[in-house]
Simulated scan of single mutants.
Amino acid sequence: MSEVEALRAGLVADIDGAASLDALEALRVGALGKQGVVTALLKTLGGMSPEERLEKGPPIQDLRESVTNAIATRKAALEQAALDARLASERVDMTLPAGDVPVGSIHPVSQVMDELAEIFADLGFSVATGPEIEDQWYNFTALNMPESHPARAMHDTFYLRAEEGVESYVLRTHTSPVQIRTMKAVAQKTGGAGEPIRIIAPGRVYRSDSDATHTPMFHQIEGLVIDKGIHLGHLKWTLETFLKAFFERDDITLRLRPSYFPFTEPSVEVDVGYSLENGQRVIGGSGDAPGGGWMEVLGSGMVNRRVIAAGGFDPDQWQGFAFGIGIDRLAMLKYGMNDLRAFFDGDLRWLKHYGFSALDVPTLSGGVGA
């Protein structure tokens, strides 16, 4: 047996007998490290003649490969043995409680939107949507708001930059354009004959305003009913039923005050009675009771004849009512929040306090009759 073969046999035997990964690493360094015996043999090839290198080089290269392969094989065996030992000795107690993990929550605005959709679905309303970047005709003109109307002023409305000679689009100031779009779609489908409509239009709206009770972007829901023989009594009953279901109280009292909106005639502001409980305003009861008062919650009215005509319906045959209310304001009233700006600050502490668990949210599954 040559010297190289004897060295290979001895190294492979030592490697196969290594009892631990640390012992194996020591053998690897002793054989293949910078000062290792195999490395020393490889360095001698540089000083040999070509003929001598051709004779002695292949056995030394085979030695290196054999040692390298033996180390890899033994390392895999030792690692597998260590894993098997851990699996045999360690146990996971499945009865232990899981650790705390971050859990998301439902934003109050999303929660209130779901509640409103549920209430109005029980009343036979469907949900309609429309674009947030709106044509001025749908946002203003079709709603009986002429060019001189204050709401069209630059300080009230966000206008988008447009090319010269082209009318600017706007960020919608209310969800009322959805009413016009829905009416026109129905009129087109029925060839102008029309058919009853009962929709709500929730969504984001934009106005140039910011303080504790106003933000440049907020959420609004508008309702529209178009039918024959509709009158103000239908509007009052709908709003009263809706508010009783939303606040989950039967003692909701409404007060309708004459007002003016260009898209309704007659128009009414709707106040709801509140009482003081532990120094806090609580919706419910008569506002005329001792310690009580009235709080404005929404605007409404009978749809203006011009708006009905703009929607493609015959105002001599069809009547209707409409109402609008801020979703954020409803959330503030129901869940005791006092600053609208906090809704959009992105503060996780606020959301943790006011947010709703996805697995344990309050519902109104009892319906409007509950």
Rank of each mutant, 00 (worst) to 15 (best):
K236H: 00
F263H: 09
R255A: 07
F247W: 02
Q280E: 11
P266G: 02
P216T: 02
P196E: 05
V297L: 13
V186C: 00
I283M: 15
I252D: 08
G223S: 14
A185K: 12
A245K: 04
P202Y: 11
D288G: 14
Q188V: 04
T253H: 06
G192V: 06
G229L: 06
Q179V: 10
L235E: 04
Y169V: 04
G203E: 11
R257L: 03
S208T: 11
L276N: 14
G233T: 00
I252C: 14
S267K: 15
M295H: 09
E240F: 03
I199P: 09
L235S: 09
A185E: 15
D250E: 15
D211W: 10
N278S: 07
L254E: 07
G284Y: 09
P216S: 08
T215H: 08
L232G: 03
H214K: 02
V268Q: 03
F242N: 00
E248A: 09
A201D: 13
R255G: 03
V170L: 07
G203R: 08
T264M: 11
I226D: 01
P266C: 10
G285Y: 07
L232I: 14
G273Y: 10
L232N: 06
S300P: 07
R204H: 15
H219C: 05
Q220W: 08
H231Y: 03
S259C: 05
F218R: 00
P196K: 05
G229R: 06
P177S: 08
S168Q: 14
V170A: 02
G292Q: 13
S210D: 15
T241S: 05
L254D: 03
T173V: 01
P262W: 15
G285S: 12
G284R: 07
S168R: 10
T182V: 03
S275P: 04
G203L: 12
K228M: 06
V178Q: 10
G299H: 11
E269Q: 15
H174W: 10
H231G: 08
F218V: 02
Q179L: 12
V272A: 06
S176K: 11
G292S: 02
E269D: 14
I221A: 10
L232Y: 09
L235C: 04
G291Y: 04
V170H: 05
T175K: 08
D209G: 11
L224C: 12
K189N: 07
K228S: 05
G203V: 12
K189A: 15
G284Q: 07
L276H: 05
T253N: 14
Q188L: 01
P262S: 11
E248T: 05
G223T: 13
P266E: 06
I221P: 11
G285C: 10
G223F: 13
T190K: 02
I200G: 09
A212Y: 09
G299E: 15
E222K: 10
V186N: 01
F242M: 01
K189R: 13
S210W: 00
Y169P: 02
P177W: 11
Q280V: 01
H219N: 12
R257I: 01
H231A: 04
P216L: 04
D211G: 09
G233E: 13
K189Q: 09
S286M: 00
